[in-house]
Amino acid sequence: MRTTRLILSVASLFMLLLLAGTAGAAPMDGSERSVTVTDDSKKTVLIRGEPQRIVSLAPSNTEILYALGLDDRIVAVTERCDYPPATADKPKVGGFSTVNIEKVIAMEPDLIFAAPANTDEVIDRLRSLGMTVVILDPQTIDGVLHDIELTGRATGQEEQASTLIEELRTRIGTVAETAAGSPADRPSVAHIIWHDPLWVCGQGTFQNEVITIAGGTNAFGPVDGWSIVSLEEFITTNPDYILVSSGSGMDRDGYDAIYNYIITEPRLQRLDAVRNERVYVIDADIVSRGSPRIVDALEEVAGYLHPGTSGTVTPEAAGTVQSPGFGAITLIFALSAAVLLLQKR
């Protein structure tokens, strides 16, 4: 009799502990969750529940989503979304500026991350069909960090976003400290995205910010955005370093057209950067996209300007979050063992 009462007492205690542990827990599917965010178009967007079917309409958005560990929830991307390599296996919903609305709808998304280049017509159409659309359009490195935080809140990945932002800020700080502590003067740096005609970066671009934080001075800093300069103006400027874009759309069969032009054009052979072999190829996607990889570009450029001293810290993947209920399962086994021992008595 006493054994039976003890077993019942243990069972009751177990139920109380189990109820106490689950009473305040949010539903596993996040159905009770509701969050409001203000996207980069200044539009306030209400997101109900925790999105499980996400469509990304821009390469930079896709990179942020993957960096936050959301690959299992991404159901479609654009044809231009090529990083990380796992994007190759995702269904495609058209191009960056040629989104196929029918294909997007067919994916039944509960959240869409778009960009201005998708066009107002496409974005307005998706919203008119009841789709939840968040626009990301970072213009600076701080803007990238802000959009990582925004994406984390929109998807319920706040902790992962916070961890990623902290790691990126640490890496940025390391580069900035290295640049500040360098005894060398700030060299002039030109970044070219095309050579016929010569297109260079000016103020208000990611590339300008990368050059500046890395310890350089943009040779064409007074220029607004991306602009064409004459060959004569480029020669007169005579930058200490030249960065040329490669990557998607910039090379053909391993042939870096811009780099080849710079180092073979007779009129450029007297430039300091060419004579001192300081012409470097940098992946256009890494240095142009508003994604976490912009910090990779920052470290790469710092490595050119300050060889052997730039930060090389790479963010590690966010740790796996322990699923709710793990502690309860352990408790069940422990109490079951206690009951069996009592029964043997």
Rank of each mutant, 00 (worst) to 15 (best):
A219P: 06
L268T: 04
V229R: 04
E265V: 04
S248N: 13
A219I: 08
L243N: 06
Y255L: 14
V229N: 11
V287R: 02
R289Q: 07
I242P: 00
A273F: 05
A273L: 03
S246A: 08
P292D: 03
E277A: 09
V279M: 01
V279S: 06
L298R: 06
P197Q: 06
Y259P: 07
D285V: 00
V244F: 03
S291E: 11
S248W: 12
G202A: 05
W226L: 01
L243Q: 10
Y280H: 13
F234K: 00
Q207L: 01
V279G: 14
N276D: 15
L268Q: 10
V281C: 09
I258V: 12
D272I: 09
L271M: 08
E299V: 10
Q269S: 04
M250A: 14
S230P: 03
V274N: 12
T236Q: 15
G216V: 00
P239G: 02
I262W: 08
D224E: 14
P222M: 04
E232V: 08
D196T: 13
D251H: 08
T217A: 12
G247E: 08
I258A: 15
N218C: 03
R267E: 11
T217L: 09
I282Q: 13
P222E: 14
G216H: 08
S288L: 00
R270T: 14
V287A: 15
Q203C: 09
F220I: 00
D253A: 01
A257R: 12
Y261W: 12
V223A: 15
D196I: 08
I211K: 03
S288Q: 11
D296V: 00
D240Q: 10
E265F: 02
V210Q: 08
E277S: 11
S288D: 05
S227F: 01
I258K: 12
Q269R: 10
E277R: 14
E265N: 13
E299Y: 00
F206K: 05
D272S: 14
V210I: 15
T264F: 06
N208C: 02
G225L: 04
G247I: 05
D296F: 01
Q207C: 10
D253F: 07
F220V: 00
Q207S: 07
G254W: 01
D256H: 15
R278Q: 14
H195R: 14
F220S: 06
I228G: 09
L243M: 09
N276W: 08
Q203Y: 12
E232N: 03
G202N: 04
G216L: 05
I213A: 04
T237I: 10
R252S: 11
I228Q: 15
G290W: 01
S230Y: 03
F220A: 05
G202L: 02
L271H: 00
V244H: 04
H195P: 06
R275V: 11
D240L: 06
T212N: 10
V279Y: 00
R293M: 00
P266T: 07
N260G: 11
S227A: 15
I211N: 02
Q269C: 06
G249L: 07
V281L: 03
Q207K: 09
L271W: 06
R278S: 12
N276L: 12
T237N: 12
G254K: 02
D256I: 07
A284R: 10
I228P: 05
Q207M: 14
S248G: 13
Y261K: 11
V200C: 08
G221A: 15
P197M: 10
D296M: 00
T205A: 00
D285G: 07
D285N: 12
C201I: 03
E209Y: 04
D285L: 02
N260R: 15
R270Q: 15
P239Q: 06
P197C: 08
